[in-house]
């Protein structure tokens, strides 16, 4: 699994912050679980924000991904927006069997991101989930591609259930992030900052002597 708290101390070249965004029940948490632990199971609705860490190597670089998973109900929007800051990548998820989840990306979520995300170069990927339910499909692949082109996003269709294309979503996103110099710098700045912080913090408990 490669993600441990102790392993945070700089055994990676870049650290990227990724956000999962989209309507309730489109499968954001399931995609994340499928990516992190290769497992598939029924999940409870996400309350507020949750997150997971994944370390992986891409193109010879060791990466740490911090992936923030968000609640889908619109009223949490303002709360979640405080987490948009500094994101390197954003995964917009919709459910190919529910058209309104697709239209809401445009009408609600893309606007929120434009409003609150602070990384101008941030990479976006549009992901249509639940392709395993092809019979119930309401949004065609072509519509997804057109949306992606219009909004300068990457695009993939996947199934958290069968795990088809799930790894690919993250891989495509990360490769694109790695190809943008501005973001790369940003990713390593985060690392530097964390190391700096680490130094400050490291002394604090000792001085205080409050560890038991």
């Amino acid at each position: 699994m490669g993600s441990s708290t102790k392993g945070v101390n700089g055994n990676y070249d870049y650290s990227f912050k990724i956000l999962l965004i989209g309507d309730s029940g489109v499968g954001k948490s399931s995609i994340l679980l499928s990516f992190i632990s290769n497992s598939v199971q029924d999940l409870s609705p996400t309350i507020g924000v949750d997150f997971k860490i994944k370390q992986l190597a891409v193109g010879g670089k060791r990466l740490k991904l911090t992936i923030w998973d968000t609640a889908g109900q619109e009223r949490f929007g303002t709360l979640i927006s405080s987490y948009y800051r500094g994101a390197h990548g954003i995964i917009f998820v919709y459910d190919v069997t529910r058209r309104e989840t697709f239209t809401n990306l445009l009408e609600i979520w893309a606007k929120e991101v434009d409003l609150y995300s602070t990384n101008k170069d941030c990479i976006k990927i549009l992901v249509g989930n639940k392709v395993d339910k092809d019979k119930e499909r309401e949004v065609t692949r072509e519509e997804g591609m057109a949306f992606a082109q219009e909004h300068k996003c990457l695009f993939l269709e996947c199934s958290a259930k069968t795990r088809e294309n799930v790894q690919q979503c993250f891989k495509d996103l990360v490769l694109k992030i790695l190809a943008v110099p501005g973001l790369l710098e940003n990713g390593s700045i985060v690392v530097k900052r964390q190391i700096l912080k680490q130094k400050q913090v490291y002394n604090a408990p000792r001085v205080g002597g409050c560890c038991s």
Binding site: T5, K6, V8, N9, D50, F51, I53, T66, Q194, K197, Q198, V201, A204, P205, C210, C211, S212
Partner: peptide
């Protein structure tokens, strides 16, 4: 507390 003080270097560590 002591774990958070010693090991958390970022908000993500806190949540973890």
């Amino acid at each position: 507390s002591s774990k958070l003080m010693q090991e958390a270097r970022g908000l993500d560590d806190v949540v973890k």
